[in-house]
Each structure stands twice: as C-alpha cells, then as structure tokens.
Design a protein around this nucleic acid. Structure first.
Length: 335
DNA sequence: CTAGGGTTAG
C-alpha cells in the first residue's frame, strides 16, 4: 500500500509541530515519492524542535536544497552560531538572484544580529525592499540583544510610523531593550502603551522583562507590586524567580524570603524554590532555617524536574563542526 | 502539503 505524498508530508509536519520528531522521521523514511516539500517539511520538523544539527545533517544527506528551505537552514545556523555556514547559504541566495524574499532575508537579518554583526544585519535590513512585522521584530531584537537598546527603540518608533502594527513579540524586544540598557522610564511607558494602545495582554515574558528592568534599577517594591497586581494567571514561579534574583543581588533579604516562600506556595513541586530559599537563609547566617528548608524538600519528596534539557545541551556540546559545502556545489543543478 | 521573529541569571 502506497501513501500519498501530499498527505504524508502534511502528516510528518503535524508530528513535528506536536513535538514528535521520531514519528515524523518514520513517516519521512517511509515516503516513497519524496519531493521538495517532503524534504523541506522534514527540515522544518528538526528546526521546530531545536535539533539544529539534524537540520544540517539532513541537508548533507539531501545534497540539494531549494530556496524554500533557506530560511530553515539559516535559522539552524543561527542557533548553532555557525555563521560561516550561514554565510554560504547567503551567498547561494544572492547567486540565485532570489531577491525580495522577505522570509529568507529576515532570517539572515536575525542570524547576523544574533551572531553579533548588528551593523551588517542593519545594512541588510536597510536594503530590503519588502519588510514585514517579523523583519522589524528581528532587527529590533538584534539591537536590543547587543546592548543597543536606544537604536532598538528608535527602530520601533520608525516601524510604527510606517504603519506596521506591533505585536506581543515586538514588545518583548522593546522591553528587553529597556531592561538591558537601564531605560526604566521608557520601559514603564512601553509596558503601558502595549496594554492601553494596542490591547495586548502582557504574558509571562513581558512580566519577566519588566521585573528584570525594575530589579536592575533596584526598584524592588515596584517590581513586587507589579507582580502582585498581575493577578490573572501570571503567578508563574519563573517570574517570581527573577524578582528573587534581583532581591538577592541588592541584599534585600527580607523581600527575598517573602518571594521565595511565595514561590514554594505557587508550585510546591518546583525544587529550585527550596534551594533558593535555603540560599537566602544561608546568606544571612540562618543556618538552621536553611537546614529546615532542605529537610522540608526531602519530606515532600521534591525532586529535580524530569527535564531532558541538560542531556540535550551535552549532546550539542560534543557535536562535530558542519560542512555545508555541498549546498554550494549542488545549487546550480537545483533549479 | 513545506520557510523567518520572543524569556532566563554575572
């Protein structure tokens, strides 16, 4: 019985988006009449699930790629900080004469910015003829993450002036820019603007940025009341952990204790809360209390989260370098 | 049927 390429390509795409890489690969391997779409979809599955080295591996296996997969490959290179390989793809893109592809060019802007070449990214960005929200967000984020928050904010204003309506991610970038550049007033204003003007409900990430911003400025009270007021569903322990970090950084152990207890209350299963609270006690010499918290943790049987993230990062550390020269070689025949 | 943007600790 033979499957239908269209159906099965969609199927493996679905598995990928649900996080089941294994099933996706099984479908892919069983595909008899693989076409460009199947290959590209499989690349997307790996990319979507953070398996960047598999993206590049599959490219090697494939031997030939088409423009539709450039964005995915570039994203994988970006995640691996493999800017040299990314440049090769860039060259191929230029050689193919494929200008005005907003997806590929946005991915390039993002990659160069992430790898520290912000000015190069901006030059690319400036020359783009077609830009969309993602392009703008990539560039704003690029400035923000490279300590050039002021320029990030200016670009944001330019984007709005051009009539592009910002989304939640735009504001993540904006708030990140503010927090990493000590722009407290701006941060407060934009947080407000996001809610009032654009009707975007702040999520965990936005609160994380805001708490980080206020925390760095040692405005602990303001940060705490902001979180307290964020009643609906944002009482996630990770956000409180950011506040706790700020407290300990400026030696506000009174608030730190309160926050750590709050974290335990919010999620009694989260082991780090106990560790952090006991650290707070040790910092002020309350050894017995520290011991007590450790014992409480034992008593409740709290264990480290059953995450696999550490294993994965180990795997990445040992991965070999990548050779994408095959992309360059085969590209001529691709069209 | 397939592609690009966000958190988080020195």
């Amino acid at each position: 019985m033979r499957g239908n390429v269209v159906v099965e390509s969609s199927l493996l795409d679905m598995y990928g988006k649900c996080g089941d890489v294994g099933c996706a690969r099984v479908v892919f391997d069983g595909l008899e009449g693989r076409n460009w779409v199947s290959w590209t979809a499989m690349l997307g599955v790996y990319c979507h699930n953070g398996e960047s080295e598999s993206v590049l591996g599959l490219v090697r296996e494939w031997g030939v790629v088409d423009v539709y997969s450039f964005g995915t490959i570039i994203r994988a290179c970006s995640a691996l900080a493999a800017v040299r390989q990314g440049k090769e793809v860039h060259c191929q893109y230029v050689r193919k004469g494929g200008w005005k592809d907003v997806v590929v060019e946005s991915a390039l802007v993002d990659m160069y910015a992430k790898c520290g070449s912000v000015d190069f990214a901006y030059r690319l960005f400036s020359r783009m003829e077609v830009r969309n929200l993602i392009t703008w967000n990539s560039m704003i984020g690029g400035f923000a993450q490279n300590g050039r928050g002021q320029e990030g904010l200016e670009l944001f204003e330019e984007m709005v002036k051009e009539g592009v309506r910002p989304d939640g991610i735009s504001f993540v970038n904006v708030l990140f820019a503010c927090s990493h550049n000590g722009l407290v007033d701006h941060g407060r204003r934009y947080f407000d603007l996001m809610k009032r003007e654009y009707g975007i409900r702040p999520g965990v990430v936005h609160y994380t940025c805001m708490i980080d911003l206020l925390g760095r400025a040692e405005l602990i009270q303001e940060a705490e009341s902001l979180l307290e007021a964020a009643d609906c569903g944002y009482d996630h322990h990770s956000v409180w952990a950011v506040l706790l970090g700020a407290c300990t950084k400026c030696s506000d152990y009174i608030t730190a204790e309160r926050v750590a207890k709050k974290m335990i209350q919010l999620d009694p299963e989260f082991h780090l809360s106990y560790v952090l609270l006991s650290n707070v006690y040790r910092a002020v010499g309350r050894w017995n209390d520290a011991q007590e918290i450790r014992r409480l943790m034992e008593e409740r049987g709290v264990k480290k989260m059953p995450g696999t993230s550490w294993v994965e990062s180990e795997k990445q550390k040992g991965s070999p370098s990548f050779d994408l020269s095959i992309v360059g070689r085969s590209m001529g025949e691709a069209a």
